[in-house]
Design a protein around this nucleic acid. Structure first.
Lengths: 130, 130
DNA sequence: CTTGACACTCCAGCTACAGGAGAGTTTACG
DNA sequence: CGTAAACTCTCCTGTAGCTGGAGTGTCAAG
């Protein structure tokens, strides 16, 4: 199939699929006219990548996971290691965003948001202790 | 003061300060030798930006907030509007990451992580329902 | 034979910087 | 006074993961 069809079937934009080829995540041979053509196996790979991305794996992770996916003999420990690192990254980011949300949420609550100039948000950014 | 000193005092790397100048967040006049020089007012601005960034505001937000900061007559409602949008962004991102963490966490728990090849993580990425 | 839907290859831009090269300036030490 | 360290400058590249657009080519239908 060509890129338009695999795009529809995988749910990934054609641009994204070309990008994955650019960075070496997949390879796609060309027809005589220069068009990429894809097999069902490529479709499996792309949906695999899409799933992994939706779980927060980076493209670097995807590269590793694809290798493990295609190695039927790999140890589940190898997969779990990658997943645990990704999980740790997610949790670090979550902690960071959560503390931002908490601090900003408190400020927003305390800001009247009316026509008056007094504003605890600006005060805080300007460095006042409150 | 020069960039090294304001860097120390603001806690921002010199690279970052130059970058803020590049994108027009601050402006800094030059001495005869071409070196940037900064005032205490610039220091206020930079710490303001640093605070805003740590609360999750984008540089675009910072640009707006700095304008509001310098306008003593602005309405607190104007500030709150920016803050609410930022908060909404944070919450969308948090929701996304949280659902990723939940899904990945479940998979990791179910993966033995030993020498055997069976792996629910790979199975899930490959599209199996479990 | 032309129109429209595809496909292709660059190149640029997004966010918010960081790293490094190569060059000039200032400062401290001997 | 010389020099070496420390500081500063500009410019270019890279990061992550695409997305948009320009300009061009291919192919099937009418």
């Amino acid at each position: 199939m060509r890129i338009g069809e695999i795009s529809k079937r995988s749910g990934l934009p054609a641009k994204t699929i070309r990008h994955y080829e650019d960075v070496g995540l997949i390879r796609s041979p060309r027809s005589e006219n220069g068009y990429r053509f894809f097999t069902d196996n490529d479709l499996h790979k792309l949906t695999f990548i899409a799933q992994a991305r939706s779980l927060g794996f980076t493209l670097g992770d995807c590269r590793i996971l694809l290798g493990l996916y295609e190695d039927r003999q790999r140890a589940s420990g190898d997969v779990k290691r990658v997943a645990l690192e990704s999980l740790a990254r997610l949790e670090r980011k979550l902690d960071e965003l959560e503390s931002m949300r908490a601090a900003l949420g408190r400020l927003v609550e305390r800001c009247h948001g009316d026509d008056r100039p007094e504003c605890p948000i600006i005060d805080r950014l300007a460095g006042s202790s409150g």
